[in-house]
Design a protein around this nucleic acid. Structure first.
Lengths: 193, 193
DNA sequence: GAATACCCTTGACATAAGTCAAGAGTCCTG
DNA sequence: CAGGACTCTTGACTTATGTCAAGGGTATTC
């Protein structure tokens, strides 16, 4: 729980009063997920947004040929959930599941709304996160244009070397938008040189 | 100018007081751009965010082979600017230029900050836009995964049929992340059927 | 209204990446 | 500890898309 407090303080450059933090703490519900357990399944409305205290999750979709595409990974001290479904209450096209046994803090949309009214730092946090998410997603979109599998892999090595250690290669491949075979060949070529 | 008022009211479900709107109006500077004129050039900091009253613009980058990739189009009643550069004051990797003679309303970052303090609806507007942008960008990222040029073209026909009328095909191709030749063949195949 | 730039199409060929299939190593789990 | 499920690699082949080049049409501009 302390991790959440630190996270909010860092991302909003605020020091939370104990009272404010008590309100925050009361709004979240702890939840444990075993490896492979779902937080959200395709077709459901995303009822909870989750702050990851421990573990790792992925957000992915399955196309009409049964191929999985991973859109996001989330690890300690980051958030996961389908923003669109969470806000609009529409069925989500995504699945979210745990890649490792994980420890989360959940919050519902009404609870978050309420909390944003009572704790101004939460409003700033949400705006800050939206902004960062937008920027990060735009960068990835930009990168997906005309860059080869090789370039995207090199980029990921720079940005998230930890992912390469932590997740199996076929998931990294899926995150980069290539097949496991292609990634395997890219890596072989990269290390040979 | 009225278009901006309507835009804010629609996107925040608010009715602006005349006084609030006077504050908004005072913060923006009108600007006309001729076709092909730049609003932002690669390497500059994005000093202004722009609301488009009339005309059309594009945001694009040029890769190391001199190939242009269009990230966004903006037309009447929408916004354009490089959010990351605008907020972080970092040099932008993007160009923004006018595809038609255009009429804009410009605002600087300090002016926007100020306005968000004095007119609460503006805060809500910015959050709403960030959220929509994030959702839209995430959708495009999702779509860019493993879908063919054909599928992406069909998707665009659904979402923005107006773009197809308004912009030359080689720009549509660039927006979809394919070459003009490929788009030409996709279209030929689509109409033959 | 001639000259020029821009735009779209089409063909021939090259190439990055996908698909299918097989095999070997490693980690779970009963 | 044996069997099965993952995981990664490698090879042969296919396919979508890019590249290069040429030609014709249509706007723009002087």
């Amino acid at each position: 729980m302390l991790a959440l407090r630190t996270h909010i303080e860092n991302y909003t450059s605020t020091t939370l009063s104990d009272n404010d933090f008590a309100l925050v703490a009361a709004a979240f519900t702890p939840k444990r997920l075993r490896r492979r357990q779902y937080l959200l399944q395709e077709g459901e409305v995303c009822k909870y947004f989750a702050f990851v205290l421990e573990g790792a999750l992925r957000q992915y979709s399955v196309n009409n040929k049964g191929v999985e595409h991973i859109l996001h990974f989330a690890v300690e001290n980051w958030w996961i959930g389908d923003r669109e479904s969470f806000v609009m209450l529409t069925p989500s096209p995504y699945n979210i599941d745990a890649l490792e046994d994980s420890h989360l803090l959940l919050i519902t949309h009404p609870q978050l709304q309420e909390l944003m009214l009572t704790v101004p730092a939460m409003t700033r946090l949400v705006r800050e996160l939206d902004q960062r998410n937008f920027i990060a997603t735009q960068r990835r979109l930009h990168a997906s244009f005309g860059s080869t599998a090789e370039e995207r892999y090199a980029e990921l090595q720079q940005q998230h070397p930890d992912f390469l250690q932590r997740f199996p290669q076929h998931m990294i491949a899926s995150y980069l938008g290539v097949t496991a075979e292609t990634l395997s060949r890219v890596r072989q070529k990269a290390t040979r040189q």
